[in-house]
Design a protein around this nucleic acid. Structure first.
Lengths: 176, 176
DNA sequence: TATTTCGTTTAGAATATACTAAACATACTG
DNA sequence: CAGTATGTTTAGTATATTCTAAACGAAATA
């Protein structure tokens, strides 16, 4: 039998699944988080399998991704060697963790690539037409400045020990 | 013959391509933008085909996506019915445009889904166990508050007519 | 009106991704 | 030590995405 509660939960979880895809994560990640977020207590892997409809393998992978992002906590129970998982409900904490995670992975790599290009261009005096070289340096420099700004912003956010509504309100004031 | 300049450009473009994928866009989008960004003048579609190595169809699609995002401007030349494209170099302008674009599409949809869940839960008094209903409302409310905060932040940014380093510096000060 | 030029759209191929099912590894339990 | 419970890894599959190649359409020109 499907209760009204089950129905509402299911729709919500489907919504989170879409949302996950929007942020660039597999649908299963959003679904697993949804299940955990609507559970009043930590769940075991098998419970996640049941409630998410995915297989053990997929849940294992997805839940690990969520833990790496800091959206899910890994807990244990005495005298029970199952792993239990529960959702992080402090999203301000989670978002910092996510930023840290993404930061290191691909974004840093991309920024590095821009910096390398700039270095190469600066070192290329003589081996290419000077007018073009000046133009390219100018362009790439603008991009790097932009990335540096984004970078310092996200680092600042990640460094905070709390990012709550008061802080956001202050930022909003500046942006008037 | 491949000059040193060509080589450096090619590597830079490859970097932007990766970066594009990181932000969730096809590699071709990044590549096309890279070509335009390193060109001192607007380019026609055929020139983009040559320099990006993609076919007309792909370039047509990708360049249109970039224009929608505001990362590329569509220009014309008198007495020439070709389309010409040039890169937007004001990234602060571009980022606002991108936020507007993404906003409307999927993110709004996701937020709406959360709000709907909350409404349904509030309307479900009697049709489910009251303790559970209270718990679910609490959880979903926290998520919605968070999204509302993000939403007002991004709307504020999108509303600005300029988002330059001074603004960012101010924000950084708050985040100390 | 026929021809050329240019951009878009479509059909299909190649690729990447995320899942399932099952084998596997590890650590408890009897 | 055999057997069981638990989570991870892998091989294969299904699906979605993004490209190419080519057909198409629209507009300018002869």
């Amino acid at each position: 039998m499907t209760t009204r509660a089950d129905q509402i939960k299911k729709e919500f979880i489907e919504g989170l699944s879409q949302m996950g895809r929007f942020w660039g994560y597999p649908g299963g990640v959003g679904a697993v988080f949804g299940v955990l977020y609507l559970a009043p207590a930590a769940l075991s892997l098998d419970e996640l399998v049941q409630r998410s409809g995915l297989t053990k393998g997929a849940v294992s992978t997805n839940v690990r991704a969520l833990a790496r992002m800091g959206l899910v906590r890994h807990t244990a129970r005495l005298g029970d060697r199952k792993d239990y998982y529960e959702a992080e409900t402090d999203f301000y904490k989670a978002i910092r963790s996510i930023m840290g995670e993404r930061q290191s992975r691909d974004f840093d790599q991309a920024i590095r690539s821009v910096r390398e290009t700039l270095d190469k261009l600066k070192a290329a005096r003589g081996s290419m037409e000077e007018t073009e070289r000046r133009f390219l340096i100018e362009r790439v420099q603008v991009l790097q400045d932009f990335f540096d700004a984004i970078d310092s912003l996200s680092r600042a956010v990640a460094r905070l020990d709390s990012l709550g509504m008061p802080t956001i309100q202050n930022i909003l004031k500046i942006l008037h």
